[in-house]
């Protein structure tokens, strides 16, 4: 019974964790800095569409980057922690805005 994950699984898992943080950070930056918000509107016509496209591209780029090396990481724990922190970040930012 194997217990190690393929390097793409680890690479894209780390990328998914970082992208969830990045998603929260991008939301805060675009809400706080109007020029960033306006730039995202000009990219695709709507800030939300640009936000999603940037997240997906960021996830894919980081995923391929991290997949180049053999990294040992507990991806399940990493994703649970990153999801909790980034979702709480979204909720708290929106609540206190």
């Amino acid at each position: 019974m194997s217990a190690t994950l393929n390097k793409f699984t680890v690479g894209f898992g780390i990328s998914a964790a970082i992208t969830t943080f990045f998603n929260t950070l991008l939301m805060i930056i675009k809400e706080e800095i109007p020029s960033v918000h306006n730039f995202m509107v000009t990219l695709s016509g709507h800030h939300w569409t640009s936000h999603g496209l940037i997240d997906v591209v960021f996830f894919l780029l980081l995923g391929f980057l991290f997949s180049k090396k053999e990294i040992h990481q507990n991806i399940s724990t990493l994703l649970i922690i990153s999801t909790i922190i980034s979702v709480l970040g979204i909720i708290l930012f929106v609540y206190y805005k």
Binding site: A16, N23, T24, M27, G52, V56, L79, T83, V87, I90
Partner: peptide, 11 residues
């Protein structure tokens, strides 16, 4: 914004 977390994890 939480939707994007779901999107990334499902991809």
């Amino acid at each position: 914004h939480i939707f994007f977390v779901v999107l990334i994890l499902s991809l």
